[in-house]
Design a protein around this nucleic acid. Structure first.
Lengths: 91, 91, 91, 91
DNA sequence: CGGCGCTACGTCCGTC
DNA sequence: GACGGACGTAGCGCCG
């Protein structure tokens, strides 16, 4: 049982504790994916509601995408700023 | 011009109430998308944790995908059954 | 500038050979897309023919989808088995 | 068996000829979908080849999409022209 | 015209 | 660290 294989053995071991642990991971992921799907459903509902009031969902999606890009850019710039500041701190 | 255009007017009206409503929809969607992204992050963390304990995330993902397919297929079969039944109901 | 940029230059070069090559790619894709569209048309025809003989195309489609899922799932399970085996091989 | 149901009966009849016919439709569609998938694969290959020579596939796709739209517009205009011509013929 | 299924894009993971 | 491949998701088109 040199090394390397020890972890794998634990992970793939057929019986006992590892199987429980494995099951736990799988169920946690599945639970989270359910939640994610639920949120996605909520988003659809919002769009449906907006559409019901005469808004063009296609445009709405575009607007949201643009705002998201703006935010991403802003974050990038802030990250760059931090980088500069830390570089100056080191200088 | 009594109604018909009313909805459109409300939706596309440049000023006042409609703008508020529009803003509301957009912010609701954006909020939900943040939540969704957060969940996605949680999922990533679970995989990372599992990986840290020696589990092969590739296998994990495939297991989860398979279980999901099972579920989907079961639903499809039930839907198919219903279709058959309703088709027979028309006979 | 020996190479490195050579590929890019070839690809984006405005004149001469590259334009010919570009044209070739585009026409090949367009030709293939035409063929694909033709096949799609054939499929539509089959459904139309079946419908003409009293078959419910909605059910037909669902049956076909289900069979496809069966096939996909079988492949996935085989892939999963292989993964397990290769993982064990490493142990 | 007044009416309406006769066709359906033929289509959904459990035994004999109808089952064969049904099988035929399904297999024809499945065969065609395989062909369609094969073509799609060919298209992917062309894009891969182009990418390998330094072309930006995203741009390529845009070009193809635009050309397709142009063709559609042209056809529409030709259809309109025909309409006018036939209208004049009737006049 | 609305809903559903399919295709295509963007994103993420694993590899070199 | 970058590239390529795979998956999930979002937009588009067809069917009902």
């Amino acid at each position: 049982m040199a090394d390397g294989s020890a972890t794998l053995k634990t992970a793939t071991g057929a019986g006992g504790v590892a199987a429980e642990r494995l099951r736990s991971f799988i169920e946690r992921v599945e639970r989270l994916e359910e939640e994610k799907a639920a949120i996605a459903g909520d988003i659809k509902e919002v769009y449906a509601e907006a559409k019901g009031e005469g808004y063009d969902t296609k445009i709405l999606r575009q607007v949201i995408r643009l705002r998201k890009m703006d935010r991403a850019e802003r974050q990038e710039q802030e990250a760059l700023l931090e980088l500069y500041l830390s570089a100056l701190g080191e200088a």
